[in-house]
Design a protein around this nucleic acid. Structure first.
Lengths: 236, 236, 236, 236
DNA sequence: TATGAATGAGGCTTCATTCAT
DNA sequence: AATGAATGAAGCCTCATTCAT
């Protein structure tokens, strides 16, 4: 998918040749395993022993490189944000007209979250912890400065064209897109157990995504521009 | 808010006279304390000793009445659903025209979730656990059968009036309303740390809620009915 | 089988009519259940809660009637000895010639033990506890005075007839008969898991019993009387 | 007696210098202590705290090396079988004529059991548990394949010489020898409390053993060979 | 005579972490 | 850079027993 992923694939799988004397490889291996474990079990639920066992190295190395469990978790959280944000960078929207760009961004976000459930779970876990580990990270602050820039550029163009409302901020649009995209992954277990899994079939997911796009575009556009839009021929 | 809350308040606060030989009181007291602890720390993060210490009874009674930590957590989850679902029942929408009723329901849901952060946290935690404890509960299944009925009634009336689209199901409307209402609470920590807290001010929250209502009504209505609607005079 | 058994059957099964106000019935019921539990799990392995749950009455009554776990165990041990010793009384050997009487007694003992595995298990458990509870019981002392009398009578007659050796005591004969009869039940689990269960089939058991009889008679008889005896036409 | 014993002696007593970083020593020390405790108190009666206290290491190490109480018990059982079976190997019977060899084996077994009361108690305890832990052990299966080979060899020679009966299997002979030898230790407490301890004096034990030998030889031999045999000049 | 509620002590086990080499 | 051995603290849970009615 991207080189981060490849790095982790390699780190998890391990090469035939020796792992010894490869500090970066050992650390990446630990991070990849720890990410899976923390995502699966949470901070208090994850076990250092379990992580170590699934690693190509020993428990001692975890402490050697990361200090303690909480700092390992912090590094995993950073790495997760880094992978996901990196995956977003490839998206190129400048050549599209604002409405199409917005649609494209919303769709991509919905799909991108769907493809990264472990990241979603880590963010859920971090929210359970009131975001204190995220706050301690300088890296995540840096990573996220660019997270909303695409949307700001789209809005700027949309407003310049007289199409977009002035009273709906890029931040709020981002919030609405994120809310649905995140909830779609984060609450799948409880929602589907209570209401069945029709919304989590291929058709159900497409419907949710299309309607999300429709709503977001409807929200961004000025009212007189909105009638009849965003329906029907939305996708080529 | 409702009598469950009052009951728990009493249970937490403790009565004037003897607590002995009051099984229901003891159980409610344990449940109330455990709900706070599980919501704050998760299933593995919560400590039975901590729960017991904040109780008016002893650790031993937790096991006497609830068996073990997981079953206590399961009962807490049930109780949380029960309280929230009970709090929804009071909402009376039948006298309102469909569009107003839908707006009212969306607003209420947004606010209701906002008022029950511990419930939201418990649902987050339960999703981390893949919903296995929710599945084991028969009570939650019963509680949720009515969770979507109000919306179905609204849609039925809206469609009968020729106002609502046929291709947007009540379940999907529920999903969209839930997604925003839930995310608003669940991801407040990470979102505000990354993007600032403007959306979590009073004005920011009102804006999010109003736009949610606008989007949901826009999604529900047929296109020809939608132009210019759901904006402006939405709230008295 | 005998009235003790019938009593216990009744005690375990419980009648349709009320158990209240029947102290003896309640106590017998407790004893019967406790015997099963102690035999199955040992003194430390048995659970008062478990015993109470399988009873027609409550845990409180166990303490009311028996004081504590150890005294209940003591009473169970007594009851077990009483039932088994009572079951032996019916055996009538005086009309048989000494050798036949001895054979009859050995056979009976082998079969009787086989029919009372719970008694065997309780004696095993008591031996694990170095017999301290048995020692505390006055009743068991009384019960066992008659346990060897039949054998003493047989030996007396056998010696008077000039058939039996003088240097093999009735007590030692009893010991040898008991050893095989007891071991047959007590070590069935380990023996059959190690060496297979051929000796625990119907044929295997008959063979063991017949050979036991043969050995015991061979031991009791004077050498010159023994040749060719105890083989072949042993049983009519 | 054998090096296992010596090893354990050393393990129990502790060496002069450092115990740290001696995994095998730590494990043997734990096993030796645990064997004593389990033999004395049974599986549920033994206390991990008590075992740990009598060890040169800590409770934590018990779990480090053995996992939990049941697996420790399983390992103790294996070790007990191993020690006893190892102690039997030294017995050399091939140079003796069959009858003498059989006598020698029976005597040895009687004495060997008598010298290993803890092994007997562990087997009793295991039978109380229906042999489930023995079944889980692969080692014990291996150890016991050779347990009966000496006897089979003797019988083969005895039959080849025309001395031994064909219808008494080596397995059954083993059973009879084991029954008496085992019962002699396992039921000493109850038997001596009920019938006095005359059979557990030095003379009593010799008598039991001699008579056991007599009976077993009598059982193995063909009738026409048996007259007057196995009495009198049996032992030099 | 009877019962459900309550309990203190102690049991087994697990955890993140550090030590010795 | 790396490892298996070791550990103290604390976690969850169970037990026989007693209390209040």
């Amino acid at each position: 998918m991207n080189d981060d992923m490849m790095l982790n694939e390699k780190a998890v799988a391990g090469g035939r040749s020796g792992w010894k004397q490869d500090p970066a490889g050992v650390q990446n291996n630990i991070l990849a395993v720890a990410m899976t474990e923390f995502a699966a079990n949470g901070l208090s639920g994850a076990r250092i022993d379990e992580i170590a066992a699934k690693t190509h190295t020993s428990k001692r190395m975890i402490y050697y490189y990361f200090g303690d469990k909480e700092r390992l978790y912090g590094r995993v959280l950073e790495e997760a944000y880094r992978q996901v944000r990196t995956g977003e960078e490839a998206l190129e929207l400048d050549h599209l007209p604002p409405v199409e760009a917005l649609k494209r961004l919303a769709e991509f976000t919905f799909d991108h979250h769907s493809r990264h459930p472990d990241f979603i779970r880590l963010v859920m876990i971090e929210n359970i912890h009131h975001g204190v580990y995220l706050e301690q990270s300088e890296l995540i602050g840096l990573l996220n400065v660019g997270a909303i820039q695409k949307l700001e550029a789209i809005c700027q163009r949309g407003r310049a064209d007289g199409l977009f409302r002035e009273d709906v901020s890029p931040l709020e649009l981002h919030w609405h897109i994120s809310a649905s995209s995140f909830f779609n992954v984060s609450n799948r277990a409880t929602f589907s157990r209570i209401f069945g899994s029709t919304l989590y079939t291929v058709d159900g997911q497409r419907s949710l995504r299309d309607h999300l796009v429709e709503m977001v575009v409807g929200l961004a556009l000025k009212p007189e521009r909105a009638k009849g839009r965003a329906r029907g021929a939305a996708r080529p």
